[in-house]
Design a protein around this nucleic acid. Sequence first.
DNA 1: CTAGATCCTCACGTCAACGTGAGGATCAAG
DNA 2: CTTGATCCTCACGTTGACGTGAGGATCTAG
Lengths: 136, 136
Amino acid sequence: MRIGKVAERAGVSVRALRYYEEQGLVIADRSPSGHRQYPESAVERVKFIQLLYAAGLTSKAILQILPFLDTLVATPQMTRRLTDERARIRVKIDALTRAHDRLEELIRLAAEYENSPATCSASADVAASHTSPPRH
Amino acid sequence: MRIGKVAERAGVSVRALRYYEEQGLVIADRSPSGHRQYPESAVERVKFIQLLYAAGLTSKAILQILPFLDTLVATPQMTRRLTDERARIRVKIDALTRAHDRLEELIRLAAEYENSPATCSASADVAASHTSPPRH
DNA sequence: CTAGATCCTCACGTCAACGTGAGGATCAAG
DNA sequence: CTTGATCCTCACGTTGACGTGAGGATCTAG
């Protein structure tokens, strides 16, 4: 399969695929004329790479993890890398969840205001508190 | 309060605070000599900014939201901005959750391998599938 | 056989949130 | 009064994952 098709089916740009190769994430054969030739499996591989990119992993971190997908040989280091990244993702999810909840709080306040713009100044302190747990 | 103390108490760098001011996120008074003077409330404000940064909002997006924190006046546009950002954060949480679950899957496989390295090649296909729902 | 689509390799541009000196003024304590 | 800590304003550097031409070769449908 050629690069354009892989890009289309994996939902990434052609440039991105060249970049992935540059980073060692995807290896492509070459046709006699120099065009890249990908196996079918490349599509899934690229989707996996995208999954990890979306989770904030760097190409270097992804490069560390990919060998496991190829060989399924789990050295202790590999297991550590996997659990480390999982932990990092958890931390991010927590941070995002906090931000999400905070915004939800503000959205409730906004809705409250839209219902009665005049009388809402009484709950003005709510916006400032609740950032840290209400003990001070 | 001076910039060093705010930085310390909010858990950010001095440079970051100057950058926030440059972006219009935090307004600081100046002492006669030109040193920035922050009110107590700046600490909470900066923490809030950090919360949104951690959720992937740009300084521009944060700048759109901050007026609500100051005035608690919710125009329809403000409500939309808030709900839009909340939606964006949800999408990110979902992506992170997918990556998290996928890693967990791999970690299970790795643990399985560590218990019996020889007999695990039978489940080699598990690594390739399950990326998209198993219908093909 | 020819044109339009697709591919190739450089290689510089981008964007955001700061980091990192350079060079100098100001502040707080002894 | 002095010295070390803290502050100021430029202003260039950094990092990562690509975007975006430039200039040219190759492929494919009619």
